[in-house]
Each structure stands twice: as structure tokens, then as C-alpha cells.
């Protein structure tokens, strides 16, 4: 079972990202469940969403304490909370950022992508917020083998028809192509 923790800020679409990854995994014959952190969510506040993916049905509902993968939708979150808390050894961290976060220390692999710029370029903005969730899923597909990029693009276009669906699919693909692993000295 793979456990994924999404950290973002209210309005960035972390909850939707967790849901989409489960939909995509299901399309590929895997099982999953996704859930948000529970509280009074509001725009701008740090919030988490979680997903579990496995080859067999999942019925575990305890919270995720030791994620295999951490996805950070907003680099400012790194200053606000310990994003790598509980990360499994050799776990994967994916961050939406325009510069390498030098001071993030952990035992694992780091992937980065400038999803915010990709969304601004595509005008994927709602109420002033670049909605980076579909882009960051492209990065997740590049960094892990949880779901294929083609499946994600398909699922995104099933969830949003027309122009919006195309923009989100483009963001996902662009992020997939631009995501790279940071070589780190530990």
C-alpha cells in the first residue's frame, strides 16, 4: 500500500488532487481511498489531504502518519509546517517551487516543478489563486509509478469538460515534462 500526503493551502485544490489520484488508480485496476484533513477549512490556511493506493481493496481509515510520498502544493508551506514529518525512509517529496529548497533535510528523493508558473501561463487561476492541483499530479506521475500520465489526463478531462478540462490536462502534461529530480548531497 502506498500512502500519499498532500500539503497545500485552502483554494489550491489539494483535496481534489487526492480524489483524482484515486480515480486514476482505479482506472488502472488499483484500489484507493482519499480523504481531506478534517476541520473548518478556509482559503489560504494550510490543509492536508491524503490518499491510499493499493492493488487490493483498502479499508484502513486511521490517519496517515508515515507517508511514502509527500506532495507540497505551495512552497510557503515548508516554512509553516514540517512537511517531511513521518516520511518513510527513502520516501519521495514533490514540491511546487521555483527554486530548490536547500534547507529541507530528509532521507529520500526530492522532485520539484514550478507548477505555479505553469498555471499562470495557462491562466488557470480562480479568485486570484493559481489552481495547481492538476499540474502537481503531473509531477506525481513523473516522480512515482503510482499512475500513468495518460490515465491522469483522461481522468482530468472526464471531470472537467471543454476548455477547462483541456487547460487542466495541459497543465498536468506540462508539469510532467518539467518535473525533475534534485541531486542532493546528504
Amino acid at each position: 500500500m502506498i500512502e500519499i500526503k498532500f500539503l497545500g493551502r485552502g483554494g489550491q485544490g489539494a483535496v481534489t488532487a487526492a480524489n483524482l489520484i484515486v480515480q486514476a488508480a482505479f482506472k488502472e485496476g488499483k484500489f484507493g481511498l482519499a480523504y481531506p484533513s478534517f476541520g473548518a477549512e478556509r482559503r489560504g490556511a494550510v490543509l492536508n489531504a491524503y490518499a491510499r493506493i493499493d492493488n487490493k481493496p483498502i479499508n484502513v481509515h486511521q490517519q496517515i502518519y508515515e507517508p511514502d510520498v509527500v506532495v507540497v502544493l505551495d512552497r510557503k508551506v515548508i516554512q509553516m509546517t514540517n512537511v517531511v514529518e513521518g516520511l518513510k525512509e527513502n520516501g519521495i517529496v514533490i514540491i511546487n517551487t521555483d527554486k530548490i529548497p536547500e534547507d529541507l533535510v530528509f532521507n529520500g528523493r526530492l522532485f520539484i516543478v514550478d507548477a505555479t508558473r505553469i498555471c499562470l501561463d495557462l491562466n488557470l487561476v480562480i479568485s486570484g489563486w493559481p489552481v495547481v492541483n492538476t499540474a502537481i499530479l503531473g509531477a506525481l506521475s513523473k516522480a512515482t509509478d503510482i499512475v500513468k500520465i495518460d490515465t491522469l489526463v483522461q481522468v482530468i478531462q472526464e471531470n472537467w469538460k471543454g476548455e477547462i478540462g483541456k487547460k487542466n490536462a495541459d497543465a498536468c502534461l506540462k508539469a510532467y515534462n518539467e518535473t525533475y529530480e534534485v541531486v542532493r548531497v546528504i
Binding site: A18, N19, V22, Q23, F26, F31, G32, L33, A34, Y35, P36, F38, I58, H61
Partner: peptide, 12 residues
């Protein structure tokens, strides 16, 4: 049904 733990959890 369990509030949040199930009500807000996505499953097939």
C-alpha cells in the same frame, strides 16, 4: 455513517 472519516472519503 462515520462523519468525515467516511462522509468525506472518496472510494469506488
Amino acid at each position: 455513517l462515520d462523519g468525515f472519516i467516511l462522509s468525506h472519503t472518496t472510494m469506488p
